[in-house]
Amino acid sequence: MSAKFKKRYNKRSLIISASVILLIIPAIIAIGVKLFNDRKYNLISFIVTFLACIPFFAKFEQRKPRPREILCISVMSTLSVVGRLIFVMLPGFKPVTAITAITGAFLGPESGFLTGALSAIISNIYYGQGPWTPFQMLTWGLLGFIAGILSKFNLMENKIVIILYGIFSGIVFSLMMDIWFVLSIDGLFTWEQYYMAIIAALPFTIIYCISNVVFLLLLYRPIGEKLERVKLKYGLMQN
C-alpha cells in the first residue's frame, strides 16, 4: 500500500471517529435530555455505549488488515470464549479479561480492543444477546486497549503492575455491569441504587479480581511467548 493511499484511509477513519465522538454522541445525549425530558437513560446509554465502539471498528476496517492479522484477532477472541467453557465449573472465574489484556499487551492496543469487543459479541451469540452486549463490548474492549497502552511503556512486564491491573479490571468490569443493572431496574440512574448494586455485587467483584490476577499471572508469560514467537516468525502487526 502506498503512503498516499494509507494517508487517505487514515483521514477517512479520522473523519468517522471525529463525527461519532464530537457530533453523534452529543447529539443523542442532547436529544435524550431535551426531547425526552432526560427520562430515557437506559435507551440513550445503550446507544451511546454502542457508538463508542465505532471509532475503533472504523479504524480497523479502513486499514484493510492482512489475513494473518484477521486470523490472529479471531483466534484470540475465540480462545477467550472457549476459555469460558473450559472453566465452566467455576462461576465468575473466567479468563476473558486476561486473554484480552494479554492480546492488547503483545499485539497492540487496537488488537486488544477488538479482541475484547468481539469476544463479547461472539460469546453472547452462544450465551444470548441482550441489552448488556454493548456494555460488555465497551468494557472488555477498553480493558484490552488499556493493557496495550501500559505495555507500550513496558509496564506490563512488572508483576506488581499486572496484579494491580487485574484488580483494576475486575472492579471496572463489575462497576460497568452494575451501571447496566441499575439502568435496567427503572430506566433511571440514581447513586443510591448504584451503591446498593455495588454492595450486592461485591462477591462477584472479588471473584472477578481474583480470577483476573490468577489468570494474568499464570498466562501472561506462556501466551505472551507464543504471541511473540508468532509475531516474529510470521511478521505480524508490524505497523
Binding site: 471498528f57 484477521i70 479471531s74 477472541s77 475465540t78 480462545l79 470464549v81 461472539i122
Partner: peptide
C-alpha cells in the same frame, strides 16, 4: 466486512477448538 469475517471465522473455530480440547 472484516469484523463480520472475524466473527464468522470465530464461530467456525469454536467447535474446532472444543474438539481439540
Amino acid at each position: 466486512p472484516i469484523l463480520a469475517l472475524i466473527i464468522s471465522i470465530s464461530l467456525r473455530l469454536i467447535p474446532r477448538l472444543k474438539d481439540q480440547i
